[in-house]
Design a protein around this nucleic acid. Structure first.
Lengths: 203, 203
DNA sequence: GTCTATAACCTGATAGAC
DNA sequence: GTCTATCAGGTTATAGAC
């Protein structure tokens, strides 16, 4: 008798559907998700999904936009702040991301999978382009003019986010348990800023 | 008048279907792909897909297994070779991956997206677990006993693979053109081994 | 081997009763 | 707001003619 999720009594029907949709979409992706899966997960009648959200696509867009701003929204202000040093930005970005992703491990792979199938639709209205002339990029150019600054942006994001992308592989292959994975990620919060500084000086 | 791909005259019907299926599956993923898409892309009759490959699922499994061994197969022998130094392994892994992914940029996101929806099915029979007691892990432990060796494995893979995972975002947001992206990736072949050495010494 | 036609099923969405 | 019943369209797969 599998205990259903989404049975918190305090939630309205609309909230129950949305919460269930988040879980199912995040797990299976848009195309593989059936509205019946969501209705079952939310423990509501199938017709109520369309009553509250009009269509599967509208419900998905609503959730996708929230996840996008969760994943990309936090980083822009940090990178654009001229009041922090490069080292401080390394720490802020990596620690913000790791904390966020420990709480939401499936977030990056969900977003990047869906973006892949529909890039222009979801990315076009994001403030990603602003990164190019951010304070972060300028500080990198001053500190290390020999290496293109985008390399260090990719390195910082890669060191912080990539382990969560590989997590399903580590998990299913038995390389790391969930507990061990979390321990490693906590260790990385202190390590990544040091590694970034070391890479800046490398030659 | 969109020119159809997969019209190379030398290919048999079976090969045309398989080649078309690779393109469509890689672009849209298993769930969003319709057998009609594949038949159209291959410019063959829909019924021939089932005649040659029995079902959509069997065709997908065939392709998925090939892609998995392409992505994971090359790394294990390198990491397990006791005859190469740590620095040589950094160079071999990063350069092998970057060359492979410049030729197949969509490979990692395709694999990781599909693995996510069905982890045990695709990962369980991979030799990923062998990495734990590989020569690479032992060499890392000797060189830097203070940091868990899996960190440096994640770093090496992240530095090499992660840019290709973010590529749809860079592309759609206009941060990097395809040509610029390739230039950066070529630069990383020389840079990543140096960065890895620098991270080993960091503190 | 290749085609047309169609079976059998599934999916998103809605009409209409309560 | 919530339910049952059902529609309309799409999907995989196959039977059978050529």
């Amino acid at each position: 008798m599998a205990k259903k999720k989404g049975e918190e009594p305090g939630l309205s029907t609309e909230e129950k559907i949305k919460a269930a949709a988040q879980r199912v979409f995040m797990k299976k992706g848009y195309a593989a998700t059936r509205t019946r899966d969501i209705a079952e997960e939310a423990d509501i009648n199938l017709a109520l999904l369309n009553y509250y959200f009009r269509s599967k696509e509208k419900l998905f867009d609503l959730i996708m936009m929230e996840k996008l701003s969760k994943f990309f929204g936090g980083i822009a202000p940090v990178l654009n702040d001229p009041g922090t040093t490069l080292e401080q930005k390394f720490t802020l970005v990596s620690n913000n991301y790791i904390d966020l992703l420990i709480a939401n491990p499936d977030l990056p792979l969900f977003i990047l999978s869906e973006v892949r199938t529909n890039p222009e639709r979801f990315v076009s209205n994001l403030p990603v382009a602003k990164i190019i002339d951010s304070s972060f990029i300028k500080q990198l150019q001053e500190r290390q003019p020999d290496v293109h600054p985008l390399h260090f942006l990719m390195n910082l994001l890669g060191l912080s986010v990539f382990p969560f992308i590989m997590r399903p592989v580590f998990r299913a292959s038995g390389v790391m348990s969930d507990k061990m994975f979390k321990t490693r990620m906590e260790e990385r919060k202190a390590a990544i800023p040091k590694w970034m500084v070391a890479m800046l000086k490398a030659r």
